[in-house]
């Protein structure tokens, strides 16, 4: 059985009177793809923000490889190997694709201010090694060689999402957090992205935790599914288990009409194959 690389224990988060997450606990098994699903406003993105350290939960603990990381600032968590992409694309618009990706490697580089100003040997060697690694490992893999010197602002939406994934990979992550990686994409782009995520998982052994509304994709590629509703974890298990969980069906449909929900989940899952 795989070990759990990430463990959330009793996470509660509120903004003023608004309870966004209440007592959420689950684990992310190493080397697997785990999906978080739930209706709009369920708290999925907030949970990601809590994991990357941008939100501070009022209660609960987060363990990464057995270490409590709850007190660490976001940059420290990135350095440990937690990388993420954002629901609303958050690329640096003033930089080229290549520089955006290189920025991901920031915390592994050592060049200091003086070395940078004079671009002396050490700084130059580090940059060249980085360029080599980014080119061979990431740019080739994600098939974005043709856009490497373009400004990210000029790219189509689907490509921007791909560059975000590339940037997250440059962190050299052990866990990849993807917030709605295929939202807003057309069918072809979705299939490409799903293939990249699967390849990452199977060839690189990457642990993936993703938020996704596209049920077809969730059912197809995830090993584990966690369901959030109004900030509460209402179900977890394999895709099959979750699909038939009455709580989940109720959450998605509000009330009754179970067969309709079944059909929707089933049809979508089958349709994307």
């Amino acid at each position: 059985m795989a070990d759990d690389i990430l463990e959330l224990k009793g996470i509660s988060l509120s903004f003023g009177g608004l309870k966004v997450l209440s007592d959420v606990s689950f684990t992310v098994p190493e080397g697997k793809i785990t999906a978080i699903v739930g209706p709009n406003g369920a708290g999925k993105t907030s949970l990601f923000n809590a994991i990357s350290g941008f939100y501070k939960p009022q209660a609960g603990e987060i363990f990464f490889k057995g270490e409590n990381i709850g007190h660490l600032h976001p940059p420290k968590r990135a350095k440990l190997g937690l990388a993420r992409s954002f629901q609303n694309i958050a690329l640096f618009r003033g930089m080229t694709v290549l520089d955006n990706i290189k920025l991901g490697a920031h915390s592994h580089l050592k060049t200091g201010l003086l070395a940078a100003l004079f671009y002396i040997g050490k700084a130059q060697r580090e940059e060249m090694a980085l360029r080599e690694e980014v080119e061979t490992k990431i740019i080739d893999f994600l098939e974005i060689d043709h856009i490497r010197n373009m400004s990210v602002a000029s790219l189509a939406y689907g490509l921007q999402k791909r560059v975000e994934l590339a940037r997250a990979l440059a962190i050299g992550p052990q866990v990849l957090l993807l917030d709605e990686p295929v939202a807003g994409m057309n069918r072809e782009e979705k299939e490409d992205m799903a293939r990249f995520i699967l390849d990452l998982n199977q060839e690189w052994g990457m642990t993936v935790l993703m938020v996704e509304h596209d049920m077809g994709m969730v059912m197809d590629i995830s090993d584990k599914v966690v369901v959030l509703n109004f900030g509460q974890l209402i179900a977890q298990g394999t895709a099959e288990d979750v699909k038939n969980d009455p709580e989940v069906i109720k959450a998605y449909l509000g009330s009754g009409n179970v067969s309709d929900m079944r059909r929707r989940l089933g049809v979508e899952a089958a349709g994307s194959e």
Binding site: S52, G53, F54, H73, P74, P75, A78, K79, A83, R84, F86, A90, L91, F92, R93, G94, M95, L103, G104, H106, S107, R167, I171
Partner: peptide, 11 residues
């Protein structure tokens, strides 16, 4: 350009 995502990326 985006201080929040910069931070999450290790800056």
């Amino acid at each position: 350009d985006r201080d929040i995502s910069a931070e999450v990326l290790g800056v």
